[in-house]
Structures are given as structure tokens and as C-alpha cells.
Design a protein around this nucleic acid. Structure first.
Lengths: 325, 325
DNA sequence: TCGACAAATGTTAGCGCTAACATTCAAGTT
DNA sequence: AACTTGAATGTTAGCGCTAACATTTGTCGA
């Protein structure tokens, strides 16, 4: 910075002013400084700036299972929105979602002096761990349920599940079976709740949900069990990957979809329209989730303290062949 | 830090020594300092440390289309490996892969003073942009071809493609059609090369490859065109997503797989085993790609300068029903 | 012509840390 | 007892920047 100042015959402070768009700099001076910066290839030292301003310009994101379509898309949305807001994103992905591992991740991010943290950690237990954050660092929990004192963003799982269940009933099914996600996932429980509520409202039999792990193989296993029964008219599977496995099992067992059984998934992954048959599902707009997360986070960062805020992103039913007779 | 020093009646320098595992500290002193750090909840200021050491402890990752399975998995592998090595990861994802956007991303990362950069940017043109980096910042290009003066890691696309083509020929196909990825993707071209080489070696007819965009819909379009021909015995599709679209098109057209046509993909996404029929494909070990990338990068960081190094990760043929008659 | 005032620029201090050198102290050596 | 030696700790300076205050310069009205 001193070099630049010397080159234009001004003080380093004026260079600093140009860098920070301070208004009290003559336009001509500003131009000269800019030129000198360019010529000398000067790059401001972000550590020095962070040291004195006490702002790192960084937000941290903790993800879990970030190779899945949902988390990956959310992360992408977050990153875009953060960048637009002038922040950089530091990621910390977890292989296991336990109190210890989440705490360790929070620690690592705290060490980096992130200004805020977004946690994509959809397990029920994490809320308690994060509650410790309330009051300390601005934070937003994605798909993690409401945490007192923190922001939270989630897709409206319950109404999405109700809608798809309603749809299957409307297509003539006496009741709808459910292949659920792992019981400790908030999203999985939200979908179970919506599905059950809708069945109850319709006065339909509520069978106990089958449990899967989100993976195609667990959907396949569930599919084999359901294919063995003769009383299954419709199945709502908690995500598209498992639905794929289930379709496979049905296919092998000679159960025709939608001929014998109606099937619907959840997520609307890009592949869903090309399954055999194309899958009716519920679209989650992960980009919006990411964007809203950053909005809620930056609100807190600007306010200088954590705030309890809640955003719900709607889910949209996408009807395809698997539920169309 | 001064507070901690005061609490234990030592100088701040001793605290600093404890923090940095300097050997010349009495074990008992070390323990006392650690305790005081704990009690006071002291957190070292990373900006101040970075300022004086001139090391940020950060590596930057530039990704493109990070919601795809491959890039997302690679990013995940990179992040894990970087963390194990004591680095934090800052991401910058691109929506378009142009010289301008890559340069902008490099600029943003440079401003953060990252110690090294990994670019997951598989377009042919990016190599030239990155060449400008050679000699400046340690960098590794993933699936971007070799760049003089930089590290590069890639999966052995060509031999993977040869292997799967060979496999289809071995199963009795007179020749193998190819649905390729976009022409400006290095990986797409590698697969075309391998496929063509193997056909030539076998003396088989080389049909002009159909071009897709990696998306299921483009695979579907290609599938419709191929289904209209009567001389198609086997198709090698450049990725699993497009293969899914192609299978769908074949299914609709009444073309049976593997009965009438053999089909194989590339990537081995988790869903591939549950396609209808389960898809023969080529597995890319993205976790290894990520790990090797960090290894190559840190080698350069340690050396204090960019180095030209090259790592190739093998690809593995996974045979499933779509190519088994 | 001169002060009053605002605009533009300059000077100084300090953010929290580590590197480099300085000092202390105990244990051995002569 | 004085003297070396090395381990353990202390002191000082400075990394590159911005905040706060200080100074200079230019403009205008009386």
C-alpha cells in the first residue's frame, strides 16, 4: 500500500480511502490511485484489514452428506447469494452428524472468525447443540427445525407431503403407504407427519411407515416388502432416490406402476422425469433455500447479534406418469 | 492473549509458544496455560496470526456445476483431505465457465490470500486462463488436462472408455455407438478418444458420436434418434444421467435393453444400480481425486512454489444388467 | 482582503499476533 | 566460587491496514 501511495505521491491513507470507496476523495485522485494499483498489481492484505476492522467477511457453512442432491444444491445457492453480498464462504463438511462432530465444526469455524454460520444439518439432535450458539454468533439452521434464538430456513415438508398424499388418494387409492427416511432426520419426520395428517383427514387406514436410509438400496428393500403384499394401491416414498429403488423392486416383482400401484417421491431430482416410469414427486427449491438462508444470516450480521427468524419455502407437487392412470 | 498471560503470570509470548507447540516450554507451564485458555475461553485471532506469518491456512476451490454428482463428490473429498491437513477450504462456484468468470474467481481467492487453489473446471478453454497462474500461486487443476507449471489430477477417462467399449464388443456387438458429452469438456473428449481408439483397434465401424449436454433430457433425445435406427447393437453413453434418459427413450420406443441393445454409462452414480435395467458403467473414484488434489497442492505449498505434477486416477468397469445378455 | 468553512489529504496509533533477540536461572564444570 | 551452558521465559518490533484526529487547501461571503 505504501508503494502505491509513493507512486502517486499521496499518503497510504488516501489509498485506503480509495479502496474502501470513501466519498472524500477527488475523482481525479481516485482514478490515479486506481491506475497505480493496477500498474503495480497491488492486492490489499485481507488479514491486516480483518485485524483492524474485526470483520472477516466470511461466512461458514457446515454441511452433512454434501454429495446428495439436496445439500449440494443448497450449498450452491448459499454460495451464490453470499458472494453477491460480498462474503466469502468457508465450508466444513461432516461425515457423521453427532453432537461432538458438530461442536468440532463450530469450533473450527469460530477459529476462523466467521461472521456467521449456516448449518445444513437436518438431524433432530443438532438443534440442541446449536442452541449453545444462540446469543453468540449469528447463525441459521437449514432443515434443522426451529432453534430458539437462531434463524432457521426450511422447506414446508409437511404441506408437501400432504399434497402428494392427497393427490394419490384423489387418483383412487384407498390409502397410501409410506416409505420414510431415517427417523432422526427432521425432514423425514415432517413428511411422515404430513402424510399421516392427510390420511387421517381422509379417514383412510394409516399403515406403519417403512423405514429407509434415503439410499436407493433401502428403497429397493422396501419395494420388495411392499410388492409381496396384495393390498398396496399407492406408495409415497420420502425421497426420489429411494423411489428409484422401489420402482426397481416393483419392476422385478412384476408390479406395474402406475398400473397396479401408484408411486410418488420427494425432491424432484433432475433424473426423476426419466425414471421408469417418470416419477410424480414434490419439488424443493433448494436455490431459494440457500438464498433465504443468507438473507436471514446477513440480517443478523448487520444487526450485530443473533436473531430468531424463520423462513419457510413452499414445496410444489410435480405430477408425472408414476401416479397417472 | 494478554489476559491468558496475566492469568498464569507469564508473558504473552509463552502463551503463543504453547499455542504453536513450541518445544521450549516446561510441560507444567504448558498445562497451566492450556487450562487458563480453557477457563477464559480464549480464541486466538487468526487474522493477526495470518498477518504476521503471512500464511492464511486456507485453500481455495473453484467449482463449476457443483450440484452434479461428480463435482460435488470431488469437492467433498477435497474438503475432507484439506481439513485433515489443517487447512480450511474456501469455495467459489461458477455458473458459467468462461475466461472472464474464472479470472474473477481467481481474483477473489487471491484477495483472500489463499495458499493454494484447486480448480474443478473441466472445460478445455480454462487451461489457458490457468496457465497465467503458473509461477504465481500453487494450483491444481482437476479434470482440466495438463497445464504447464501446475499440478493436475484426472481420472483416466480414456482407458475407462476403452474398457467399457471393449466390454460391449466382447458381448457380441459389431460396433458401439457413443453419446458424448459437450465437445468443450475435457472429460467428454477423453471418453470419445478412448471409445474411438478401441473401435479402431477392433476394426469396428466408427459412427459419428451423438452430442449431449450431460443432462437426462439430452440423453433422452439421443435415445430417440438411436431407437429409430435398426442397426444399433450397443451404446456407450458418456455419463449415467444421459444414460438414464436414453434408457427411457428406448423403453418408450419398445427397444429392449439388454435384449435388443446393450447400454453402458460412465460415473457410477449411486442410482445406477437401480436403473431399469441396472446400468453397466465406469466408476470414477471422486474421493480419491479430491484427496490426490490436496496432496499435490500441499506439496507445492510446502515447497513454497508451484510445481508441475500429474496424478491419474484409474477408472473401473462395473458390469450390470444393461450389458448382460 | 480576510476569515469561515468544507473538502481533501496527512499523521499517528494500535488491532493481536509471532520472530528475533535478550534475559534469567538452574545445573554442571573447572 | 566463578564460569559456562542450555533450557525457559521475557522484551521489543513490526506485519499492513483503518479509525480518529490533525492539517492543508480551496471557495465563498462580508
Amino acid at each position: 500500500m505504501a508503494d502505491v501511495a509513493r507512486a502517486v505521491g499521496l499518503s497510504h491513507q488516501t489509498v485506503s480511502r480509495v479502496l474502501n470507496d470513501h466519498p472524500l476523495v477527488r475523482p481525479e485522485t481516485r482514478a490515479r490511485v486506481r491506475q497505480a494499483i493496477e500498474d503495480l498489481g497491488y492486492r490489499p492484505n485481507s488479514a491486516a484489514r480483518a485485524l483492524v476492522t474485526r470483520r472477516s467477511g466470511t461466512v461458514g457453512v457446515i454441511t452433512f452428506n454434501s454429495t446428495l442432491y439436496g445439500p449440494a444444491s443448497t450449498l450452491f445457492g448459499i454460495e451464490q447469494a453470499a458472494r453477491d453480498a460480498g462474503f466469502v464462504v468457508s465450508i466444513d463438511s461432516l461425515t457423521a452428524l453427532t453432537a461432538t462432530s458438530v461442536r468440532a465444526a463450530l469450533d473450527r469455524l469460530a477459529k476462523q472468525a466467521v461472521e456467521g454460520i449456516i448449518v445444513i444439518a437436518p438431524l433432530s439432535g443438532t438443534a440442541e447443540v446449536l442452541a449453545a450458539l444462540a446469543g453468540e454468533v449469528p447463525a441459521v439452521v437449514v432443515e434443522g427445525g426451529a432453534v430458539p434464538g437462531l434463524g432457521s430456513v426450511s422447506v414446508d415438508q409437511e404441506s408437501g407431503a400432504r399434497r402428494v398424499t392427497r393427490h394419490l388418494l384423489d387418483r383412487g387409492a384407498a390409502t397410501v403407504w409410506h416409505v420414510a427416511g431415517p427417523g432422526d432426520w427432521i425432514e423425514a419426520e415432517g413428511r411422515v407427519l404430513g402424510w399421516r395428517a392427510e390420511l387421517r383427514a381422509a379417514g383412510a387406514t394409516v399403515h406403519r411407515p417403512l423405514r429407509g436410509t434415503w439410499s436407493p438400496s433401502s428403497g429397493y428393500a422396501a419395494g420388495r416388502r411392499l410388492a409381496a403384499r396384495s393390498d398396496v394401491e399407492a406408495v409415497f416414498v420420502a425421497n426420489d432416490q429411494m423411489a428409484l429403488g422401489l420402482l426397481r423392486a416393483f419392476h422385478e416383482a412384476g408390479v406395474r406402476v402406475p398400473g397396479d400401484v401408484l408411486v410418488a417421491g420427494f425432491d424432484d431430482v433432475p433424473e426423476a422425469a426419466y425414471f421408469t416410469p417418470p416419477l410424480t414427486t414434490v419439488r424443493q427449491d433448494f436455490t431459494t433455500v440457500g438464498r433465504r438462508s443468507i438473507e436471514l444470516l446477513l440480517e443478523q450480521v448487520t444487526a450485530g447479534r443473533p436473531l430468531e427468524r424463520r423462513a419457510v419455502v413452499p414445496a410444489e407437487l410435480v405430477v408425472r406418469q408414476s401416479s397417472t392412470r
